[in-house]
Simulated scan of single mutants.
Amino acid sequence: MRQVKSCGFIVMRTQPQLSFLLLMKHSSRYDLPKGHIEVGENELSCAFRELYEETGIAASSLHLDQTFRFTTIYQTSEQRFGLQEIAEKTLVIFLGWLKQDVKLQLSEHDAYIWVDWKPPHAIQKKTIDPLLAELEQHFHKNEIRF
């Protein structure tokens, strides 16, 4: 089984209210700014590159939370070279806080939404819901108040 790794960000903002960014690739599927790691990249540089490529958000516009790192492994079906291939995918997500309001410049997605932080969330069972549950625990454990 082929193994792949994808890295990205959950981007949070506190104004106008506490919320996080989701990209909408299809009418029924939301996602985070993320993508496959390239040769010579580490996880964080991949996440920053993908964030900039997909949203126009530069690394300088984010405050990186050094203590949060979400990882999950799951099986997925990918189209490669015209063939359906099963892969074991590792997903690594970092937490970034917007320093100021930014105008998003989408390159790979049709739309985006800011979702108010009102746990528990039920958005997507495979990756986003577990990420948000772990993020909620992170906020509670580190006494992050809003």
Results as ranks from 00 to 15, higher is better:
residue 91 L to N: 11
residue 96 G to Q: 07
residue 69 R to I: 09
residue 129 D to E: 03
residue 43 E to A: 08
residue 127 T to M: 10
residue 61 S to W: 07
residue 97 W to R: 12
residue 41 E to C: 06
residue 144 I to D: 00
residue 82 G to D: 00
residue 95 L to V: 02
residue 71 T to L: 14
residue 80 R to Y: 05
residue 124 Q to G: 13
residue 137 Q to A: 11
residue 82 G to N: 10
residue 17 Q to W: 08
residue 71 T to K: 13
residue 22 L to A: 04
residue 145 R to W: 01
residue 28 S to T: 06
residue 28 S to W: 11
residue 125 K to L: 12
residue 109 H to D: 15
residue 88 E to Y: 11
residue 28 S to D: 12
residue 128 I to Q: 02
residue 14 T to G: 09
residue 11 V to R: 08
residue 45 S to V: 13
residue 138 H to N: 04
residue 95 L to F: 01
residue 16 P to I: 02
residue 146 F to N: 04
residue 6 S to V: 05
residue 16 P to Y: 10
residue 97 W to E: 14
residue 129 D to Y: 09
residue 78 E to K: 14
residue 140 H to V: 11
residue 101 D to W: 00
residue 100 Q to W: 02
residue 62 L to W: 07
residue 76 T to D: 15
residue 113 I to R: 13
residue 1 M to T: 09
residue 122 A to F: 15
residue 135 L to H: 02
residue 56 G to A: 13
residue 56 G to V: 14
residue 142 N to S: 04
residue 34 K to E: 06
residue 42 N to I: 03
residue 127 T to S: 14
residue 14 T to W: 03
residue 5 K to P: 00
residue 6 S to Y: 06
residue 64 L to M: 01
residue 146 F to D: 05
residue 116 D to F: 00
residue 136 E to H: 09
residue 33 P to Q: 09
residue 109 H to N: 13
residue 25 K to R: 14
residue 35 G to Q: 09
residue 23 L to I: 00
residue 107 S to R: 13
residue 87 A to K: 15
residue 10 I to N: 06
residue 96 G to Y: 00
residue 103 K to Q: 11
residue 82 G to S: 02
residue 108 E to Q: 14
residue 89 K to Y: 07
residue 123 I to W: 06
residue 112 Y to G: 00
residue 64 L to S: 03
residue 67 T to S: 15
residue 75 Q to C: 06
residue 68 F to P: 03
residue 113 I to H: 08
residue 132 L to R: 09
residue 48 F to W: 14
residue 46 C to Q: 01
residue 65 D to K: 03
residue 36 H to T: 13
residue 109 H to G: 04
residue 84 Q to I: 05
